[in-house]
Amino acid sequence: MATAGLIVIALALVSALTAVGDVDVSVRRGVSTGYNYLARTLAPNNTANWVYDYRSFDTCLESMIIYLGCFVSILALGRGIIKMRGYRESERYEEDTLLPKEAEDTRPTLILRYFGLPAAMLTTAYGIYVVTGGHMSGGGGFQSGVIISTAFLLACLVYGRKENPFRFTRRFLVKLASIGMAGYALLTVPGLILTGYALYNVGANIWGGPYVQGLVTAESFPAGQDPSARMNLYPAPLVQTIFGGPWVLQLHLNEAPYDFFITPGTVPYINLAEGFNVTGAISLIILVFLLGWREEEEK
């Protein structure tokens, strides 16, 4: 596990450093010139993946910052709690004596007991729904992670520690967040290999235009030409199948005389990785801040 983590970190570092090394002053604004070219002419009223590209990468980095901040905070607070527990035990301090007696008898009401579990499960399902549609409607990985963490928070507030229907452990949440971060780091590699730019959205095609295999230019989209006729200008069946095929969407637009086949490329996978990362990070915050940090919980 540690070796795999080191390999992923090394790949991410190489990707980042290579990308920084390739940057020159002539880089045009935006993710791709093809996006900028089409953005001036087509702007349907829905969240499309070419718009998403402008903000998803920024959100991913924000979630990483949350995860790192949470991890450092938990390291500090967790060690502090452990030390305090050790000190108290050496002083023959019994934690239960400080708890109010009525708190032990506090149980959720009948409604909460029977409402809490369905609400938590349906909220979790909603978080999953949000992450699966983030590339074509409102939502995304960050929102999904927050919603699932909210379900966990709801269960914590209703059931407390002992009867909590979630059995999120610290180890599981750290693994979940780490898998999300590693997945995001690995998604930099295809773009780096195929286009020379880390995180480039390979496998995507913009409103039925050619697949973004390499960096396309405005000249690739001559005015008046049916973009769907140029779908296979840059054939890469394996890349298209992995990153575009499973999520391809047929668009029926009243403004267009033909149907578009649009793929979001790597965006759904980035959403999934980001959702894992945020779920792990925020649930870890809730777990430690609300329920405390106890070593015996992992046993």
């Binding site: 699932i148 054939p235 199948t241 759904p268």
Partner: peptide, 28 residues
């Protein structure tokens, strides 16, 4: 479409939702 995945692509969110549901369902 390459490799003709279009007829199945609208089922992808269903499958992903199912897999993620099983993953989080085991945590209950």
């Amino acid at each position: 479409f390459p490799l003709n995945l279009v007829p199945f692509s609208e089922a992808t969110p269903l499958l992903v939702g199912l897999i993620l549901g099983v993953l989080f369902g085991t945590q209950y």
